[in-house]
Write a protein that binds this DNA or RNA. Sequence first.
DNA 1: CCTTCTATGTATGCACTGCTCACATCCTCG
DNA 2: CGAGGATGTGAGCAGTGCATACATAGAAGG
Lengths: 194, 194
Amino acid sequence: MPQASTYHHGDLRAACLRAARELLEEDGSAALSMRAVARRAGVSPTAPYRHFPDREALVSAVAAGGYRELAGHLAAAHPEPATPDELAAVAVAYVRFALDHPALFRAMFAEPCDPGNEERVAATAAVSEYVRGIVRRAYPDAAPDALSTAVWALVHGLAFLHLDGKLDASTADAVADRVRAAVLALLGAAPAPR
Amino acid sequence: MPQASTYHHGDLRAACLRAARELLEEDGSAALSMRAVARRAGVSPTAPYRHFPDREALVSAVAAGGYRELAGHLAAAHPEPATPDELAAVAVAYVRFALDHPALFRAMFAEPCDPGNEERVAATAAVSEYVRGIVRRAYPDAAPDALSTAVWALVHGLAFLHLDGKLDASTADAVADRVRAAVLALLGAAPAPR
DNA sequence: CCTTCTATGTATGCACTGCTCACATCCTCG
DNA sequence: CGAGGATGTGAGCAGTGCATACATAGAAGG
């Protein structure tokens, strides 16, 4: 625990990430400015630049955290899904996450994932691997790449269409039903699970 | 054609949209500022505000144009798709459009489609209806809402995953093959076309 | 034809932003 | 204990969105 020494913050990097995350949740991505983060962390406007070379880097770090959080959220929905129903439950959790954290979710996908940011690349790769693993386990006889790509794309697209108001997202149940139905429809085309 | 009268531009609104579109294609969404648009249109920094109440409105108008362009692009891929293969061709065109105009595509979906902007809402509704109509025609016996939602989400998700570099988009052929395979897989689960 | 009204463009200015650079402070380690 | 590097501060620049007051021109009506 950092003592109340005025000058050095103690863990400014973490404080910046937390502040950025809060700003994102409260007022959306437009409110996520370096200076606002600094204000919220109770620090001078340029202090965050000691930990993040530029705004891009801050956003990428927040996004990376978002990926980790998403992975945890999915795992919580079902640790090792194997049946189509279990897989659909994970899909519902994915869309739920997007709807619960719209600004964060957009930050995670709005800008191109610059290959320069290793943390971010690694985090997205982890999600990708997670989905692939699930599909491989559930459908060992299918072409895993094609099927997991299709599943991820379907779920990802559903998340965005709900976010954009193209699909009614007013009740959680309706969203869940829609996502489940779409995923099960896609999986119906795959070889039946063993 | 407007004469070279210095003061009044002639059709500044259209010029702004064109300039904004160019800036988007050239340097991405960050370069799309009111002032940059004004500069490119050869007009004072605040002139565009006569035609767009704020930046949001300008972006929404550009996005609306993008939706119309996308609709045209899809129709060009196949005017009235009925078979799964034809439908897949339209899907490929959708993803192609996203990859050819990444910044525009992101502008179309990055921010929540505020229900206030009628032009934008109408434009997205048109695309939605277009997809629905295709699916209804191709699969008259399926639940049209569920199936068209699933198809759109799949294709939309594929577009974003390619945009974000999660799927290799280096060659157009590879992208097309992947999209086709995913769409045909999904459609395999639907009642066969008559 | 001349006035007036309104749409459209201009000029100025404020608050804010990302970012740079010079400086201050503190912790660590030789 | 003293040097040096890490971390924070401060002032300042260029650029932004936008509001407000002003200028201009083309159309409408006498």
